[in-house]
Every structure is written in C-alpha cells, then in structure tokens.
C-alpha cells in the first residue's frame, strides 16, 4: 500500500493481503535503521490468519520517501497521523527496538488508538554509545556492520536462518544500507535523546506483552525485564536470540504474539 502523508509518499506492507482498516488491525513499528522487512516473518504470518496487518516504513526508510523524523515523540505523532490517514481507529501495536520507544509514547499519549501493545527486544530507554551515533553520521556502513554484529545472537553470527539459503547478517546489512542516507543516524540520535520511557510506561493502561531475549546486547535482558516491571504486563523470554529476534527466532516471537493477540 502506498499513501501520501505530510506530502510524502509512504509505503506500508500489508503482508501480501488486502487491508481492511475496520478489522482487527495490528501495526508493526520498526526500529532504528530498519523497515517493514524486519517484520517479514510476522506480518505475512498474521495477515494470513485474519489479522489486518500493516507495517509502514517511516519517512526515509525502506520504500518510503522523505527524510527521517528526528525524535521519538515526533515519530509517535507520525504514527497517530498515519492511523488517521488510513482510517484505523484502534489497533494492536507491535514495536521492535526503537519501535518500542515509539510505542510507549503512542500508547501513553493516544490511549484511545491502542487496544494492546507488544514490545519486542526493547527497553524504557535505549542509550546509544556516542561513538556509534557519530559513526552513523560519518561512516554509515561501519555503523551498520557494528549494529549487525551486536544485534545478532549465535544463530545470526553463524548465518543460520529459518528461511533456507538466507544469511541473517548480510540480509540485515543490505536492509539497513537501503535506507536514505542519514536515517540511521537520526534513529540512533532519537533513541539516545529519549528519556520519557518510565513516565510513558506508567501511563499505559492497555494490556501489554514484553518479549525479552537472552543474547540481546543492544537492549539487554535486564533492561527488557525493567520495562516489563514498569508495564506490569505479560512476559515471554527467548533465551537463544539476539536483538534481531523477529528474524532470528520468528517461531518463538510469533507464538508469543499469537497467544497475546
């Protein structure tokens, strides 16, 4: 699906199915430097099981035009506008990494739009090493390589993949490299600057699920557990996954989401 939002052409994957905004809508919110492809093994799965899945690429990411949004708060406002533009009045949110921070803001400031919220490999705050933020600006390919290294667990590093013949590491690198120059830096800087997580989490009243991964070096397990305590919701732990859990351990992620939905 392609729509125009804020005078910018936006692409949104609907998992290969027609989208009905009046149905049981699930919005997947991607992380920094990512796109709808990070949820490739979720939105097709759920779209073919009756959910109305929609995964927009934020401006400057994936197949969307435009330039990246600079703050988590503004990103949450953008998703609220996206919902209005596509006729979605209420949805279940699924956010990964920075997508989880956006989800905290969206669910706390627009509670009428959110029925449930699932948080995958994320935290109340995602401080980013200043050197990595700078690297994303000065040598983006090196920043991407570092993030792929830190972002994957053991199966990712050994290039296993549930989709036969596919390499986690190189697929991830190419996905991130295909974004508009500067999108990664904007996302990392936005993560670094975001401090409202505890306040936002305390304001969320809808049911929540937190998925925490044992080999996550970007939003470590203890940070995920802290988020879950703040949300006081359901918790699922996936021991053998790194940060990129939606592609690294899709069966476990989908099983947890399906039970939660």
């Amino acid at each position: 699906m392609r729509i125009t939002l804020h005078n910018t052409e936006i692409f949104a994957s609907t998992g290969g199915r027609d989208f009905d905004s009046t149905g049981n809508v699930v919005i997947f919110i991607h992380g920094s430097g990512q796109s709808h492809l990070g949820f490739m093994l979720q939105h097709r799965f759920f779209a073919n099981r009756g959910w109305q899945c929609i995964t927009p690429d934020m401006p400057g990411h994936g197949l969307s035009k435009g330039t990246a949004i600079k703050t988590v708060e503004a990103m949450a406002d953008w998703y609220a506008d996206f919902m209005q533009a596509t006729g979605i009045t209420e949805a279940t949110l699924v956010g990964h990494s920075m997508g989880g921070l956006i989800e905290l803001e969206l669910a706390s400031r627009y509670p009428h739009l959110v029925s449930k919220a699932a948080f995958i490999s994320t935290a109340l705050a995602i401080p980013v090493n200043d050197a990595l933020v700078d690297l994303a600006s000065t040598k983006e390919s090196a920043a991407i390589a570092a993030m792929m290294d830190w972002g994957h667990g053991s199966s990712g590093h050994i290039h296993e993949h549930t989709m036969p013949g596919t390499s986690h590491m190189f697929y991830g690198k190419r996905l991130m490299a295909s974004n508009t120059q500067g999108a990664l830096h904007a996302g990392l800087a936005a993560c670094n600057a975001y401090t409202n997580g505890p306040t936002a989490a305390a304001a969320i009243t809808c049911p929540t699920l937190t998925i925490v991964c044992g080999q996550d070096r970007m939003t470590p397990r203890k940070a995920g557990l802290a988020l879950n305590r703040a949300l006081d919701g359901q918790l699922v732990e996936i021991p053998h996954s790194g940060h990129m859990s939606t592609t690294e351990q899709p069966f476990d992620v989908n099983k947890a989401l399906r039970a939660f939905f």
Binding site: H159, E160, H161, M163, P164, G165, T166, S167, M169, F170, Y171, R174
Partner: peptide, 21 residues
C-alpha cells in the same frame, strides 16, 4: 529446499557476502 543443501547455501552466502544463495 533441503536442510543439507540449505547449510551449503547459507555457507556460500556467508563466504561471498550475499543475502542468500
């Protein structure tokens, strides 16, 4: 696809820097 062949494909992708083989 076949599980044994898939190991070879993933090894080849890893060695050449491809997203898939």
């Amino acid at each position: 696809t076949n599980p044994t062949v898939a190991v070879l494909e993933q090894r080849l992708a890893a060695l050449d820097g491809g997203v898939a083989a």
